[in-house]
Amino acid sequence: MAYIETVTDENFERIVLGADKPVLVDFWADWCGPCKAMEPALVDIAEEYEGEVHICKLDTVANQLMMERYAIRNIPAFLLFKDGQVIKTILGSRTRSSLASEIETGLRAQ
């Protein structure tokens, strides 16, 4: 099973911004039903893109700093980073295929 890494305000810089390959960060919270509903899709996406895109999760309740820094107002929200820059913002619930499609659009646009 592919690995989804948990990131925090403290390690965000190192794991996400300093990564040598694209990183998708899932901004989520335990109280958010749609975020939980997307979990299986995210696990599966992590498997599909293993080695190409690193998938991370950030708990927005415990990590307010990153939430504010990236102006996250609604969750679930997914930010795709490349070379420390946000290259794609995906807001709201998505089907597995449309999340994959948005990742690919983001990567192709680079």
């Binding site: 509903a37 597995r96 295929s97």
Partner: peptide, 15 residues
């Protein structure tokens, strides 16, 4: 939306 192995990702059916 169905384009994945449903044995690996049953949630595709919800999609």
């Amino acid at each position: 939306a169905s384009a994945w192995d449903i044995a690996v990702a049953p949630a595709v059916l919800n999609d």
